[in-house]
Computed example of a mutant assay.
Amino acid sequence: MEVTRAVSTRPYSGDITFNAKSGQKGSTSLYGTEVHATRYQYGFAMTPARLHRDDRVIEVLKGLTSLGEVTGNHARFLYDFSPDSLVLRWTHDFSPRLLYCFEEDPNGDLTMPDLVRRVQVGDLDP
């Protein structure tokens, strides 16, 4: 299984939070953290023939669609990785032709105009 880089659906605006460490305070108690509250899109590629059991592809898809929250030792690392949308393409083509197809409008709704265009012009067989 291969995973592409994560790409945000909206530009980074440079948001910063100012915080204080817990416990006894000192001269270094205050700190700032850069945050980016966004959705990320990833591409996954899988070759079922490379699996020892090709029926495991279904279990992988179930796992991808049920990703939950990933957490660290502080609430600032809490991020929900569960997918809002999922596009699947079963093909022998080595080029997926649908990576990073999501866009987020100012209201936070996801759209896929580039994916729709690629299907309409025949670049992708629906």
Results as ranks from 00 to 15, higher is better:
residue 1 M to A: 15
residue 2 E to H: 15
residue 3 V to Y: 07
residue 4 T to S: 15
residue 4 T to E: 11
residue 6 A to P: 12
residue 6 A to I: 11
residue 7 V to D: 00
residue 8 S to Y: 07
residue 8 S to N: 12
residue 11 P to G: 09
residue 12 Y to A: 15
residue 15 D to E: 14
residue 20 A to I: 13
residue 20 A to F: 04
residue 23 G to F: 10
residue 24 Q to F: 08
residue 25 K to I: 03
residue 25 K to C: 05
residue 28 T to W: 01
residue 29 S to V: 07
residue 30 L to C: 05
residue 33 T to Q: 12
residue 36 H to I: 09
residue 37 A to E: 12
residue 38 T to Y: 01
residue 38 T to G: 00
residue 38 T to Q: 00
residue 38 T to F: 01
residue 39 R to L: 08
residue 41 Q to D: 04
residue 43 G to Q: 12
residue 44 F to K: 09
residue 46 M to E: 06
residue 46 M to T: 11
residue 49 A to N: 15
residue 50 R to Q: 09
residue 53 R to G: 03
residue 58 I to W: 00
residue 62 K to L: 05
residue 62 K to F: 02
residue 65 T to L: 04
residue 65 T to W: 02
residue 65 T to C: 07
residue 65 T to V: 08
residue 68 G to S: 06
residue 69 E to V: 15
residue 69 E to A: 09
residue 69 E to F: 03
residue 70 V to A: 13
residue 70 V to F: 11
residue 73 N to W: 04
residue 73 N to H: 12
residue 73 N to P: 02
residue 76 R to T: 11
residue 76 R to M: 14
residue 77 F to Y: 08
residue 77 F to P: 03
residue 77 F to D: 12
residue 82 S to Y: 03
residue 83 P to F: 01
residue 83 P to R: 00
residue 84 D to A: 07
residue 85 S to H: 15
residue 85 S to W: 15
residue 85 S to G: 08
residue 86 L to W: 10
residue 88 L to K: 03
residue 89 R to S: 04
residue 90 W to D: 13
residue 90 W to N: 11
residue 91 T to E: 02
residue 93 D to K: 03
residue 93 D to W: 03
residue 93 D to P: 05
residue 93 D to T: 10
residue 95 S to M: 07
residue 95 S to I: 06
residue 95 S to Q: 08
residue 95 S to V: 06
residue 98 L to I: 08
residue 98 L to Q: 10
residue 100 Y to V: 04
residue 101 C to Y: 00
residue 104 E to W: 01
residue 106 P to C: 09
residue 106 P to Q: 12
residue 109 D to L: 07
residue 109 D to K: 12
residue 111 T to W: 04
residue 118 R to L: 06
residue 119 V to I: 12
residue 120 Q to A: 13
residue 124 L to P: 00
